[in-house]
């Protein structure tokens, strides 16, 4: 039921028990997804309280950025607007979601310190809150996605199921990165700055605006070892009607497995301590 009807808390009984409890936290949080959603939606509403357009303000500023950068890069790279504009639009929209989930992950536990230190709410609830908050924002940007897909005629050639698969795999990956950032930021207060710099650097190293061209030499290296490239590629590629490059999906799936295994272990070992870090 609501707050644990029966609660048993004990001292550490070994590693296996810690993992079992961490898993119990995860399961409990999945049973309370509606609570995570309530918190996430409240965040969205309160962030844009009093503004007429609400989250659409971000959509609007993103749309202007897409127009500006779209025209600019079409000129710079001598590629037709027909190719550049949709590429840039989808790149900016999905990059926004990826980077925000990770950057806001730093705040996940720090922000929830009040609730964590006096209730028995599952800790994962706050991880989902961060992810869902950004999904709510993304849902406003669907306007931009639909606009370019329809305007440039990609609705005829796009492969929606593959794009959705790509989005799901991306979410699975950024949620563990977000959790790792949340734990690390709770313990060390300089992590958010580091995460911010990494994400800024990654934005330029990832083909968000620029077309990657042929994959060879240094470029191939930059793309192959950049997880964010695979995320964008797996979502954007099929929407733009490109033949699906299965290697990106494979890499994302493997990365999700390895990443969750590592981060979940980290969580299992630090779970007791996180509330004291805050």
């Amino acid at each position: 039921m609501q707050i644990a009807e029966h609660m048993l808390r004990t001292g550490s009984r070994g590693t296996r028990d810690e993992f079992r409890r961490a898993f119990a936290d995860l399961v409990a949080s999945l049973g309370k997804l509606d609570l995570a959603w309530s918190l996430a939606w409240h965040d969205v509403v309160s962030r844009y309280r009093g503004s007429i357009l609400g989250p659409f303000w971000i959509t609007l500023s993103m749309a202007f950025m897409v127009l500006g950068i779209g025209f600019l890069y079409a000129e710079l790279q001598h590629i037709s607007l027909q190719t550049t504009m949709p590429f840039v639009a989808l790149g900016i929209v999905f990059w926004g979601m990826i980077s925000q989930v990770i950057i806001e992950g730093c705040e996940t536990f720090v922000q929830a310190s009040g609730m964590l230190s006096q209730t028995s709410l599952p800790m994962f609830t706050f991880v989902w809150r961060t992810v869902m908050r950004n999904l709510a924002t993304l849902s406003h940007h669907v306007v931009i996605i639909v606009a370019v897909v329809v305007w440039f005629g990609f609705w005829r050639t796009m492969n929606l199921p593959m794009a959705i698969l790509g989005l799901v795999l991306t979410l699975l990956n950024i949620s563990w990165i977000s959790l790792a950032a949340a734990i690390a930021s709770a313990r060390f207060r300089d992590i958010p700055q580091i995460v911010m710099s990494i994400m800024q650097f990654s934005m330029f190293m990832t083909p968000v605006f620029w077309q990657p061209g042929t994959r060879q030499g240094l470029m191939n290296l930059v793309l192959t070892f950049n997880p964010f490239f695979h995320m964008l590629d797996a979502i954007r590629g099929p929407l733009l009607g490109a033949p699906a490059d299965l290697s990106s999906y494979g890499i994302l799936a493997l990365m999700a497995l390895a990443g969750w295994a590592t981060t979940f272990s980290l969580f299992a070992f630090t779970r007791r301590r996180i509330v004291h870090y805050l």
């Binding site: 707050i3 029966h6 048993l8 230190s117 028995s120």
Partner: peptide, 18 residues
């Protein structure tokens, strides 16, 4: 309330906690 985990020993609560 369930927020702090014991380092040793145990806490068992039956019932809804407010």
């Amino acid at each position: 309330s369930g927020a702090y985990e014991p380092d040793e020993g145990e806490i068992e609560v039956s019932g809804r906690i407010a």
